[in-house]
């Protein structure tokens, strides 16, 4: 399986083993969506811990439960690192919460350039379980 589409995002595993996720325009994520999306990451990665690129440039955010889940131990068991692609003020604002109040248990960085994000994520490709 190379790609999965969930209710709120499209996920694809690229040639170098990074999972690229793009949330749908105007999507607002709840806990169920976060669980569905991380399960999709898990399925694409065959249970391995992988670096993930999440493009949230067009999202409308997520509930507190959703943010907590993305910052949880469970998420850290699935993702070795996360590059968050932010462009708009709104997506940058959401991203900043994941750097502080919803701090993840894995390295997370905000990018506005996809190539830079992919370059950074390559450091975590071999970080398998």
């Amino acid at each position: 399986m190379k790609e999965i589409t969930t209710k709120t995002e499209h996920l694809i595993i690229n040639d170098i083993g990074i999972i690229e996720c793009k949330t749908f325009p105007n999507s607002y994520l709840n806990l169920e969506d976060a669980i569905e999306n991380l399960n999709a990451v898990k399925a694409l990665a065959n249970g391995k811990k992988v670096p993930v690129l999440v493009d949230i440039t067009e999202t409308k955010g997520g509930s507190k439960e959703c943010r907590d889940y993305y910052a949880s131990e469970e998420a850290a068991n699935i993702q070795s690192a996360c590059a968050m692609l932010v462009e708009s003020s709104l997506s940058r604002l959401i991203g900043n919460f994941f750097l502080g109040l919803n701090k993840t248990k894995f390295p997370l960085k905000l990018f506005s350039d996809k190539n830079e994000a992919i370059y950074w994520l390559q450091n975590f490709i071999n970080d398998e379980r």
């Binding site: 607002y28 409308k60 955010g61 507190k64 943010r67 708009s88 003020s89 709104l90 604002l93 959401i94 919460f97 109040l101 919803n102």
Partner: peptide
């Protein structure tokens, strides 16, 4: 309404801050 309008962004940020 969640939009990129500055006033809405501030309100959205305040909501999230308050929750946390």
């Amino acid at each position: 309404e969640i939009t990129n309008e500055p006033i809405n962004l501030i309100a959205f940020g305040l909501n999230m801050l308050s929750e946390e």
